[in-house]
């Protein structure tokens, strides 16, 4: 490490201070203040028990995990070959792929969602094409249900996976692949026995970051999902915005925050190991 520990801390200090002021203090204020409303610890525990094991919250937690897992799997399956292509591409092709991946970041969620409506709606482009070529007789329901949530979230989360995997793939020593080929390995074997294991830490990191982000999603499921596609963050938002039931929201926030932080700890470890191995 070329930077001394002290210098590093000094350089980080302004950012850390900002984060503490802008994120930690308000969250602390919100959680602390809301829980204080409930009263004693045992009263808090009682409320927690009632909130977390009530039908809606349990269902939302299940939904959240299931949707997050499914989206993560899809993002991995789509993202892996995409990252591979990106790690191999040069010049214009590279720029083109990268732009396609990153561009969605610069459009607002609302614009993006209306774009999805144009594509996926009952009278949208995809249904019209499928109806036109006679593949279906009735329009498919691609939006306002679980399918819509999965499509939307997969799209939004793809860049995180692709960029994480790209970093891991770019770090793979190309000479190792050539060496494997020279030692008699077929392209499939080179991929399975050398490339995949060498990018595994990237896969784990990508899966964790995608899953973590997916857990906290609420804009996309709210806009593209059906009535039953409620994720935990949406429930929190409802408790804050609709019922003004902040203690309940605070309790759910603690649960989500804890799970996220635990997963993040794993993520941090994995990426550290990835660094160390190089």
């Amino acid at each position: 490490m070329p930077l001394s520990r002290l210098t590093a801390w000094l350089l980080l200090a302004p950012t850390l201070l900002l984060l503490v002021l802008v994120f930690l203090v308000p969250i602390g204020w919100f959680i602390g203040g809301s829980l204080a409303e409930l009263g004693t610890l045992s009263e808090i525990w009682e409320e927690a028990d009632a909130v977390l094991f009530s039908g809606a919250v349990g269902g939302a937690i299940l939904n959240t995990n299931w949707i997050a897992a499914l989206v993560t799997l899809l993002v991995l399956l789509i993202g892996y070959p995409m990252s591979y292509a990106l790690s191999r591409a040069k010049g214009l092709v590279f720029t083109a792929i990268l732009l396609c991946i990153v561009l969605p970041y610069f459009t607002s969620t609302i614009v993006r969602t209306y774009a999805w409506m144009v594509l996926l709606g009952r009278n949208g482009l995809i249904n019209q094409i499928l109806l036109g070529i006679g593949l279906i007789n009735e329009p498919l329901q691609l939006m306002y249900n679980r399918t819509g949530v999965i499509i939307g979230m997969t799209y939004v989360l793809l860049p995180y996976m692709v960029l994480t995997l790209y970093a891991a793939m770019k770090a793979v020593d190309q000479r190792l692949l050539q060496a494997a080929e020279g030692m008699g390995a077929s392209p499939a074997t080179v991929f399975l026995k050398v490339f995949m294991p060498l990018t595994l830490h990237g896969v784990i990191a990508g899966v964790l970051i995608t899953f973590i982000l997916a857990l906290g999603f609420f804009v996309t499921p709210a806009l593209m999902g059906g009535p039953g596609d409620i994720m935990i963050a949406m429930l929190i938002e409802r408790e804050v915005e609709l019922t003004y039931n902040w203690p309940t929201a605070a309790l759910m926030t603690i649960v989500l925050l804890t799970v996220t932080l635990i997963l993040y700890a794993f993520y941090a470890r994995i990426s550290d190991q990835g660094e160390a191995r190089r």
Binding site: A56, G59, A60, N63, P227, I230, R238, T243, N245
Partner: peptide, 12 residues
């Protein structure tokens, strides 16, 4: 509160 709890359970 009653409405929102009932609604959340119902939509899920």
């Amino acid at each position: 509160d009653r409405v929102n709890r009932a609604w959340s359970r119902w939509v899920l």
